[in-house]
């Protein structure tokens, strides 16, 4: 399969925090799906928190920028674009990259800091999101060749999150931010149907330090999203950000308890990451996609059962 093209699918995996430390099933699925798609994934040894764009940037912009530049410089050592599966990390790496490329004076100052630890930032490699690599680098046609099974009837609530599309002047989607379709198109490669729902592009509520500040406020965003998704009659939520994923997964329990008087029936919508969905349609072993629980641990993710999704996979794909 187009092996000659694979050389360009070479990325340094920027893990961030939530993916490796709370949702390792997402890390599993990104690594294995990219491998299956013929991409080369390199490590970024010693990478730190991105740092989170709404939290740590809100505390001290210079610190945010220099740690971000250090992270990017680790990918540069591998001569590859940093690849992140997180909208927050994407926001930081991409915004920092854009800011530094636009501002040579700032770039010089940052490099003065980095020289103190023997590092250098060049800005030669564009930070990319997993979805950007799938949609823009590989493209729908390339991925379609790997799809072995099609869902017959799977209704999906696609959740983009914010920082994958905004700020649009620092993103690769041609300035589009109100109603993007790239994630829906990837989802529908699997035969699943992306169901329109009210305020589909709204924030999950977790970002911008809000979840840490007042969990109830973050959960109220999530309550609104979940209510709209349920009204549209969806089977599963597909997202592309681990922090949204956490907010929609663990957040369902919080909404069910904090807003139990407002929501009627408690929510129990499975939350699945985009590479996990693509992987099952590619015929990959669900174990390689982090979809099979293989432990007796309690109080770990996923907090909302994904069994209804696995049942659909079993009914329709196997």
């Amino acid at each position: 399969m187009k092996m000659n093209e694979n050389e360009k699918f070479r990325y340094a995996l920027f893990l961030g925090c939530v993916i490796p430390n709370r949702y390792p099933m997402i890390e599993r699925s990104i690594r294995d799906v990219f491998d299956e798609l013929g991409a080369e994934i390199l490590e970024m040894p010693g990478a730190a928190c991105c740092p989170a764009p709404g939290v740590f940037r809100a505390f001290h912009i210079p610190t945010w920028l220099v740690i971000a530049a250090r992270n990017i410089s680790i990918a540069e050592e591998q001569e590859a674009s940093p690849l992140t599966g997180c909208n927050g990390c994407y926001g930081t790496l991409r915004d920092a990259w854009c800011d530094l490329e636009e501002n040579p004076k700032e770039k010089k100052e940052i490099n003065e800091y980095l020289s103190k630890i023997g590092r250098k930032y060049t800005g030669n490699y564009e930070p990319k999101h997993v979805v950007q690599a799938l949609y823009l680098d590989m493209g729908l046609d390339y991925i379609r060749d790997f799809i072995k099974y099609q869902f017959k009837d799977l209704k999906v609530a696609v959740h983009y999150g914010c920082h994958i599309v905004k700020p649009s002047d620092k993103r690769p989607w041609g300035g589009q931010y109100e109603c993007p379709t790239f994630l829906d198109e990837l989802v529908e490669l699997t035969g699943a149907k992306s169901i329109p729902y009210k305020d589909k592009y709204m924030c999950c509520g977790a970002g911008g330090a809000v979840r840490t500040a007042v969990k109830e406020v973050a959960a109220d965003f999530t309550r609104e999203k979940l209510t709209n998704m349920r009204e549209a009659g969806v089977d599963v939520i597909i997202d592309c950000c681990p922090f949204c994923h956490l907010q929609l997964d663990l957040g369902q329990l919080e909404v069910n308890s904090i807003y139990k008087d407002m929501i009627g029936e408690p929510f129990s919508i499975p939350v699945v990451y985009i590479t996990q969905l693509l992987g099952v349609a590619m015929g990959m072993d669900p174990n390689r996609l982090g979809l099979i629980k293989n432990h007796e641990l309690s109080g770990v993710s996923p907090f909302t059962s994904i069994q209804p999704f696995l049942d659909i996979v079993k009914d329709q794909l196997i």
Partner: peptide, 26 residues
Amino acid sequence: PPTVHSYPEAVEECHKLMELTGFRKL
């Protein structure tokens, strides 16, 4: 993961940077 968690010297690098930017002081 193969992040700062696996490389104590990387944590030191970040601390040095955060010292330089004034974050520790902040």
